[in-house]
Computed example of a mutant assay.
Amino acid sequence: MTRVFSERSSTRATRRPELEAAVKLAGEIRSSDVAVTLVVHEHKWLGRGTELAMLTEELKTSDVGLEFLTGELKGSHGPSGIVFTVLAAMSGMEREYLRDQEVSLRDIATGAKKGQHSSPATVMRMLREHDEQAATAASA
Rank of each mutant, 00 (worst) to 15 (best):
L55C: 01
I108Q: 09
R48N: 01
M93L: 09
K114G: 11
T85F: 05
S9N: 08
T37P: 00
S104H: 04
A112T: 14
E51F: 06
G115D: 08
A89S: 10
Q101R: 15
T37A: 08
V40R: 04
G27Q: 00
E94K: 08
L19N: 02
T2S: 08
S31F: 02
T136R: 14
L98Y: 03
V39A: 01
L105I: 11
E67A: 06
K44E: 07
E20I: 14
V123A: 01
G92D: 05
E132H: 14
V34I: 12
R15S: 10
R8Q: 13
R99G: 05
T37H: 04
F68Y: 03
F68M: 01
T56F: 03
H41F: 11
R12Q: 14
L25E: 11
T61I: 06
L66D: 02
S6C: 08
G49Y: 08
L98T: 03
A35C: 10
E94S: 15
L98S: 05
G111A: 13
H77A: 06
A140I: 11
E67C: 08
E132S: 14
D33C: 08
V34W: 11
G75Q: 04
K114A: 11
Q133F: 15
S76H: 11
T136Y: 15
V86R: 02
E7V: 05
S31I: 00
A21S: 11
S91L: 06
R99P: 03
P79F: 11
D107T: 09
S119M: 14
L55Y: 07
T122E: 06
M54V: 07
T61C: 04
Q101H: 12
F84Y: 02
M90Y: 12
L59P: 00
E51N: 04
A112G: 15
A138F: 15
L127P: 10
S104Y: 03
M126F: 12
M126T: 09
E28R: 05
P17C: 05
P17H: 12
S31Y: 01
G47W: 10
Q101F: 07
L87P: 05
L127V: 13
A88W: 08
S76N: 09
H130I: 12
L105Q: 12
A35K: 13
K114T: 08
D107I: 10
H77F: 04
K24Q: 09
A89W: 06
V40C: 05
R106K: 13
E18Y: 07
A53M: 08
R99L: 12
A121R: 13
L66A: 02
S119L: 13
S10E: 03
G81E: 08
R15I: 10
G49F: 07
P79S: 10
A135D: 07
E42W: 06
E102N: 13
A88T: 14
E20N: 07
A88M: 09
F84Q: 00
A88D: 15
E129Q: 14
L69I: 03
F5T: 02
S62R: 10
K113Y: 12
P120Y: 02
L38N: 00
A22P: 00
S10G: 13
G75S: 03
E129D: 14
I29E: 02
L87I: 04
A35H: 07
G78C: 03
R48H: 07
D107W: 15
R3P: 00
Q133Y: 15
L105E: 12
H43T: 01
L98A: 11
E129W: 13
V83R: 08
L19Y: 11
E132V: 08
T11Y: 09
M90G: 02
E20G: 02
E57P: 01
D131T: 14
V86H: 02
